[in-house]
């Protein structure tokens, strides 16, 4: 299973959820599969998907899922400490770990060698850290979303590989405004 196949499979679980999606191919693939206003596509700031989702989850009473990547989360490893100490129960971090920098040509990341994101998350204080295959991701994500008392970190191990795709043809403020409107807190939109 590659990322595109996994994102397709996840649609049955995430369609109604607030999703912050990692920059580059993950967002482009998600957009291609099923563009929705409750998906916040990152167009910059590689590494911050987990952090943007965390900030949102601290401020609304709805489930928030950050879809991150192995290469991206390795850029912002302090995020695990913050999540381990501060993540509310409505927060789920889903790391799609394909062992490569997919958006830049599938160069290998350290999760291909000696680095375990699961151990980093657990050692940082995150509870409910689940490492699973792509096929098992939906069931674990459903469990995380249904659990109203605990936050989760799910590391989905899949193969590298991408599909031909174009940049997202939305401007950033459009993504921002329709996402905030969907949350329902913004009266002026």
């Amino acid at each position: 299973m590659n990322r595109f196949e996994l994102l397709n499979l996840l649609q049955e679980t995430i369609q109604q959820e607030f999703v912050v999606c990692n920059i580059g191919l993950p967002s482009q693939e998600l957009y291609k599969i099923n563009d929705r206003s409750n998906y916040f596509y990152m167009l910059g700031s590689m590494g911050l998907a987990s952090s943007i989702g965390l900030g949102l989850s601290l401020t609304i009473n709805k489930n928030v899922i950050s879809i991150d990547g192995d290469g991206s989360v390795l850029m912002n490893m302090n995020t695990f400490a913050t999540i381990g100490n501060r993540a509310p129960a409505n927060y789920t971090l889903l790391i799609i770990d394909n062992g490569s920098y997919g958006s830049t040509g599938d160069q290998k990341t350290f999760t291909n060698e000696r680095t375990s994101l699961k151990d980093i998350a657990a050692g940082s204080g995150c509870e409910n850290v689940i490492e699973c295959s792509g096929e098992e991701t939906n069931i674990n994500l459903k469990k995380a979303l249904a659990d109203k008392d605990n936050s989760y970190v799910i590391i989905s191990k899949i193969n590298s590989g991408n599909v031909p795709i174009k940049p997202i043809p939305l401007n950033a403020v459009t993504i921002r405004d329709r996402f905030r409107k969907k949350i329902g807190l913004v009266s002026y939109l």
């Binding site: 700031s45 952090s51 943007i52 965390l54 900030g55 949102l56 601290l58 807190l185 913004v186």
Partner: peptide, 10 residues
């Protein structure tokens, strides 16, 4: 990043 998310949450 956390501030950006908090802003999205108003």
């Amino acid at each position: 990043g956390i501030c950006a998310g908090a802003y999205l949450g108003n």
